[in-house]
Design a protein around this nucleic acid. Structure first.
Lengths: 215, 215, 215, 215
DNA sequence: AATGAATGAGCGTTCATTCAT
DNA sequence: GATGAATGAACGCTCATTCAT
């Protein structure tokens, strides 16, 4: 269904649920990949365990060798997969010195990763905007992680004089996160047709200069 | 349950499903109010028709006299209720001349209405970030409506010289919508404790001046 | 399946689970009767809710309008049905003055009731000899109730001189209960072919005189 | 787990299912011992093959090298283990001449063995009071075996004049068996706290003299 | 119109059994 | 022989929807 999936390449699970043998790891990942595909297509509650099993090419019962229950699939998705994407962000940020360039790197990488795994993007968008009981803690943690990165960048920008000192920091974080999120959301609703990464520079420009005319 | 509900006061249903007698209208609204409460608490798929009926003080079967099915409750919610909120926005915008003041009015009213009906806010946030929903067309329409208002404002701002001419309009729209949405989202996740409307001015400031230091 | 069932005639449920309308009461009883039949045939854990529903002539879901879950069917069986049988015992006992005649009345009625409702007898036998988690409290209560009746009789017998004073009361209770139980059990294993009530007098004789030769 | 288990000491399996090597024999017994422990704790249908395997320290699949299926574990339990206990009974009976003493020896040994292996007692109690079990034939045979011993004793007692001649033999058997069973059952339900063997003499006294006052 | 008992398809989950290693 | 991952049939239970009253 999805020709390319960065899951298999990037992921290195540290603690296997049941065992760490290659074969099991394979199945664990196959189920998780399948689940994300199904969740993306139908939404979590509309998806059935049987669909995921069929998509993963395993029996229904096999799911329960790797996941405690249906909810746990979502939890693991956020615990291991999406969280690691965010680790990449931090890495990318460290490649730049300038605060604005750090922000640019972050956003570019964010858009890039979400563009490369559209299913992840869909599931992420859906679940982060809900009282999704099961994956709540994972989502909270991820969210905080991302906001912390942005905070650090802005604080650095304020320190080095490239950003305004009279900023309401916690609002700025949401301001940036919200705009990026909505950019992705819009791209998804448009069917993922255009190039998402190309939005990074214009976005940065808006963040930095605003929409006001200051000449 | 909710002392104040703007539904009953604001709403003027044009076409009653079965009849236009007050009594029926009452029941239609009671069910819709109840549904939003339940959806907000549990999410659409977690909510049961029985819960909505109990909350509305009617029998399960009665729901089906006013709504085609469970999905239809959500569809009607977006068709009638939330859409009318957006009509208010347009009205509010027209009260100002200045583009920036129009934007300020829009956002202030947006935050105000969502603060006043938190349940609507929750349902709105959840449903606008998913696909494969029954209310898809309604949401698309609402979304377009809102973005159109923002577009008009920005275009006016560009015309009167208060906003930059080199703006990627469709990105600016998302930029603004996204930031406001995320501000609301954050407020919801924080339990709706602080005053949401007070975020309007700082937000406008960010939109207009950006975060960059330009002295 | 069972031409005669004393359930419908004897039972007068005081608190209906959902409502007290005749129709519901009918269905409640039909399900319970069906359940006892199925449990008797297959054992509790071997029986499926679908079987019970089919036997009762209702849909699977209907069961859950009257019973919390499968376990609850067994619990209700012991709470309402079998318990009432034991109430009859007490009534029967009061009809005699003499301790031995009281015992005879008790045992005769016991054998009679269990003979008349063989399915109840089977379920009773099976569940009282297990660590049956769900109906444990009900069984304990019934058991105590029965043993209390026997105790009273024996104590009266000791008081009026018709029974030995050097009896280990708690052993005597089990001695009597066990013998009667086993008599029923044997009758069940033999397919319920012979007349169970005719065992009452010989049993009483054994209880009173023992097997020893005392001439 | 159980410091003392008479299984390993007493048991001498004649036909090994697959082989007669010590190692296999060990595993066969370990599984059977584990199974009885698990069945006693949870009941047959509540127990899973995995639990038994874990308790026995073998893999799930290993069970099927020694037993045809789950039912077969119960069948073998009655075929080999419990049956041999009853062989002991016969041996014990032969140690006395007097009919009453034979009965006393039988019951004392019965209570003693069941007290020493409480798990066996639990499983035995549960399974002998149900129908539609896989171990039906085994139980029937055991039951007959026990009743035959009692019959012989009573007949001898009648012959030597120590027991009444006007006894309904098949009732007397059940009378004795039932009382002993119930005594054990009660001991189990009380948590096996008191000394079961001490019940033997009072029981014999009841059997022989009855509860009636004959002075 | 209003009810709510009844329905039964469909779900998540369990677990006895198999079989490749 | 021994393993334990994999299977998939079967279960208990839920709930959107219907319809007789």
């Amino acid at each position: 269904m999805n020709e390319y999936s960065f899951m298999s390449s990037i992921w290195k699970r540290k603690e296997a649920v049941i065992s760490t043998r290659d074969k099991n790891n394979d199945k664990y990942h196959r189920i998780l990949e399948a689940a994300v595909r199904v969740f993306a297509e139908q939404g979590f509650y509309q998806s059935t365990v049987s669909q995921i099993a069929r998509e993963a090419g395993v029996a229904d019962g096999t799911i329960y060798l790797y996941f405690k229950n249906k909810d746990d699939i979502l939890v693991q998705f956020f615990s291991y997969k999406a969280k690691q994407v965010f680790d990449l962000f931090r890495e990318e940020v460290s490649k730049a010195d300038n605060a604005v360039e750090k922000l640019r790197n972050l956003i570019r990488r964010h858009l890039d990763e979400f563009q490369r795994d559209k299913n992840m993007a869909i599931v992420y968008q859906a679940e982060t905007h809900q009282n999704s009981r099961s994956a709540e803690p994972q989502i909270r943690e991820m969210s905080k992680m991302y906001l912390d990165i942005v905070s650090e960048i802005v604080e650095q920008g304020q320190a080095d004089g490239s950003m305004r000192k009279d900023l309401y920091l916690s609002l700025v974080k949401r301001f940036i996160v919200g705009a990026v999120d909505e950019t992705i959301n819009n791209w998804l609703h448009a069917g993922g047709k255009y190039d998402l990464v190309s939005m990074a520079d214009p976005l940065i420009d808006l963040f930095v200069r605003g929409i006001g005319n200051t000449q």
